[in-house]
Design a protein around this nucleic acid. Structure first.
Lengths: 327, 327
DNA sequence: CCGCCAGGGGCGCTGAGGATA
DNA sequence: GTATCCTCAGCGCCCCTGGCG
């Protein structure tokens, strides 16, 4: 930067102002500086800027290490929104959901001087370290879970389950079976609740819920179970990936979808539309979640005194061909 | 840090040495320092460390903004390997493959003082800016494409195509049709080449290649085409996601897979095993690619004089139930 | 002489205040 | 007085030199 200043015949300070869009710089000077920057191939040094200004303009995101669509989608939304707002994002993945792993990830992020953190995973257990961190650094969680000081941007999971269940009931099914995710995930509770409520409101039998772990394989295992139970005509599966597994199992058992059994998933992954049959599912607006999370986070950074808030986004049912009236 | 030093009754320098695992620190002193760190909740400041030492211990990765499985998988491998080696990674996504977008992304990374860059996308076009950057900063590309100074870690795409094609021929199919990806992607060229060679070697008819854009929708469109052509009994599709679309189209046209038409994909996404029928595919070891890319990158960082090298990883055929002998 | 530690200088940048027109 | 620019003093840490046992 000193070199640039020398070449442009100005002070380092003026170069700094020019580069950060500061007002009081004459057009002529600015042009000279820019020319010098160009000629010298100068690149600003974020580390120095951060050290000096105390601001990093960086957001951190903690993602659970899975190959699932939802994680990528949220991340894409986060990066877009952050970039638009002039922030960069640094991500760390955790391979476990226990509190020490998450605390560790958050600590690493805080050492990178992030100004805020997005937790793109369920806060299954919270320890003191995490609570302290969330008090120090603005944090938003994209799952229903939270500490007292985290903001939340999430999808209304209860509604998602109601949409799916009511759709199946309205088609004429007597009741709806359910393959849920791991119960430690908070969103799973919401889905199970919505499913149960929808059934109870119409006075239907509430079957025991089966449980998977989000993997297609676990969907397959559970499909092998429900497929063997007589009278099962409708299944609400808590994720599209598991729904694929369920459908596969049903096929193997000689049941056709949707003629014999209707299946509804959750997520609306890109392949949902292109499997056979195409999957009726409840779409979660992952990218919007990421974007809203960033907006809320930046608001919290700029106004640290604001109280923790919860924002809920509504999911929407997408009817395709894995559901129909029972035979 | 000064506070910690005061509390521990040592100099800041000693604290620094303790924290960075420097040898010459007495066990007793180290314990005192660690206690003080704990008590004060001190966290090291990466920005200052970076500025002072000139090393950021950060790797950059440029990923193409897609929700595709490969993107997440490579990223996971990169993060793992980087973390293991004591590096952190900062990612930026680009939504276009043109050279200015990529140059821009690399510049952003260089401003973050990354010590090396992984290009997890095809270098469709290279401009001077990118070339300069790759000369300044060690770079590895996970696609076949490259500038003179980039290292390459990639899957042998020609072999992938041969594996798929030869598998189908060995099953007794007369010839194999092909749905490729966008031809600007270098790996697409390799796949098309391998497919063609495998056919020619056995003196088979080489049908015109159809072209998709990686999306399931484009697979569907192409499936609608090949499905209408008489005598088509085998199709090699350049990605699993497109293969899903192709199969869907075939179903709609009343063709059964694999009885009427055999289909092979590439990638081995998690759902490949759980669709109906499960998909025969050529697995690409994405995580290994990410890991190897990091290892190579770190080697290049530590030994900047080393010449650019290309490392090729072999793909493997996974036979499932979307392929069989022709009727 | 070696093992351990303290102090000074500086990394590249920005914020505050003063100088110049 | 106002617009424009400059000088100065660090931000928190690590490298180097040197002093103490």
């Amino acid at each position: 930067m000193a070199d640039v200043a020398r070449l442009a015949g100005v002070s380092a300070q003026t170069v700094s102002r020019t580069l950060s869009g500061h007002p009081n710089v004459r057009e002529h000077t600015r042009a000279k500086v820019l020319a010098a920057v160009e000629e010298l191939g100068y690149r600003k040094n974020d580390a120095a800027r951060m050290l000096s200004s105390g601001r990093s303009r960086t957001l951190g995101i903690v993602v659970f290490e899975t190959m699932f669509y939802s994680r990528s989608a949220v991340t894409v939304g986060v990066e877009h929104a952050a970039h638009r707002a002039g922030y960069s994002v640094s991500a760390v993945t955790v391979s476990s959901l226990d509190s020490t792993a998450i605390q560790d990830a958050m600590t690493r992020l805080s050492e990178h001087n992030v100004e805020g953190i997005i937790l793109a995973l369920p806060l299954v257990q919270v320890n003191k370290g995490i609570e302290d961190l969330t008090r120090t650094i603005p944090t938003v969680c994209t799952d229903g879970s939270r500490t007292p000081s985290t903001h939340v941007v999430t999808v209304d999971q209860t509604m998602a389950a109601r949409l799916a269940t009511e759709h199946l009931l309205s088609l004429g099914h007597e009741t709806v079976w359910h393959v849920s995710g791991p119960e430690s995930w908070l969103e799973v509770g919401g889905r199970t609740k919505g499913w149960r409520e929808a059934l109870e409101e119409q006075g239907r039998f509430v079957p025991p819920a089966l449980q998977g772990d989000w993997s297609p394989a676990s969907g397959y295992q559970n499909g092998l179970i429900v497929g063997r139970i007589p009278d099962v005509t409708a299944v609400f599966v808590a994720s599209d990936e598991m729904a694929f597994g369920v459908i596969r199992a049903l096929h193997e058992l000689g049941k056709r979808v949707p003629e014999d059994v209707s299946v509804v998933g959750v997520d609306d992954i890109p392949l949902a539309e292109y499997c056979s049959p195409s999957l009726t599912t409840v779409a979660q607006p992952f990218e919007s979640i990421g974007e809203r999370a960033v907006e809320r986070l930046i608001a919290a950074i700029e106004n640290p005194s604001s109280a923790a808030q919860t924002e809920t986004i509504e999911p929407s049912l997408i009817v395709r061909s894995s559901t129909s009236a029972p035979a």
